[in-house]
């Protein structure tokens, strides 16, 4: 297991990782403006595990997408690791995401035609790593999530929990500092959900990943260090856990 530690463990850095100021996001449906987020300011520390909660439609996913650089704000600024990502164009954002963020979604979103290993390898196709090195890293990431013996399985041959582990391995394979997770346990039963949450906790604690996780589940939020509440597009409270 030497790999497991050498490849993905990072020294814990302290300081602010994410800084959001007076952020607002509107969507447009034709000419109709839909205000989704307004006047959001917050800071997320390096190495934090933050849960984002709130009723359906409150804008959690929207905020998470902005933090992960999938979308750009209408107003305000977001800087991640000192970089103003709200200023980046689409292409630059794509490159930035590939280097700095891992994504985990509720519905795993694995490519059904690729094996677990090939799914995990996908982000590495964007690097200059050799084929051997890519394979080595993909297998190491699968080892971190405890699926080294399922490398050649297709997603259809895996359980939901296992699929989510593969998705997590894919999120960490290029060793990003930040993981954003949108209801990662939303589609899993209690026991499996807890296993996934423990895995995220491990990644946070032992691998120094900063994690922002949207969830509806108070039990899930318990695994985090902090909790932020969102309602109708505004922050309504925060709580240390």
């Amino acid at each position: 297991m030497a790999d497991r530690w050498s490849l993905f463990r990072r020294s814990i850095v302290t300081g602010t990782l994410i800084e959001i100021e007076t952020l607002a996001k509107d969507y447009y449906r034709g000419k109709v403006v839909i205000p989704v987020l307004s006047d959001i300011s917050l800071q997320i520390e390096q190495g934090d595990f933050l849960a984002l909660m709130g009723p359906s439609g409150s804008g959690k996913t929207t905020l998470l997408n902005l933090i992960g650089g999938l979308d750009t704000p209408t107003l305000g600024s977001i800087s991640v690791g000192g970089e103003r990502i709200d200023k980046l164009g689409q292409g630059q954002l794509a490159t930035w995401r590939s280097r700095n963020v891992g994504f985990v979604f509720q519905f795993y979103n694995l490519l059904p035609v690729l094996s677990a290993e090939k799914n995990v390898e996908l982000p590495l196709l964007l690097t200059n790593l050799s084929r051997r090195e890519r394979k080595k890293r993909a297998l190491a990431a699968l080892a971190v999530v405890g699926l080294q013996d399922r490398a050649s399985h297709r997603p259809t041959e895996l359980s939901g929990g296992q699929e989510q582990r593969v998705a997590i391995a894919r999120a960490i394979v290029s060793d990003p500092g930040l993981l954003v997770c949108d209801e990662p346990t939303g589609d899993l039963d209690r026991t499996t959900a807890d296993e996934i949450l423990e895995l995220l906790q491990l990644l946070n604690r032992d691998y120094g990943k900063t994690i922002v996780m949207v969830t509806h589940d108070p039990k899930a939020a318990d695994h985090a260090n902090h909790c932020l509440y969102l309602d109708k597009g505004s922050l309504t409270g925060s709580q240390a856990l």
């Binding site: 999938l70 292409g91 794509a94 490159t95 930035w96 995401r97 590939s98 280097r99 994504f103 979103n109 490519l111 996908l122 982000p123 964007l126 894919r170």
Partner: peptide
């Protein structure tokens, strides 16, 4: 998902 990961 490919785009999310960073494919241009």
């Amino acid at each position: 998902i490919l785009k999310t990961i960073g494919f241009s």
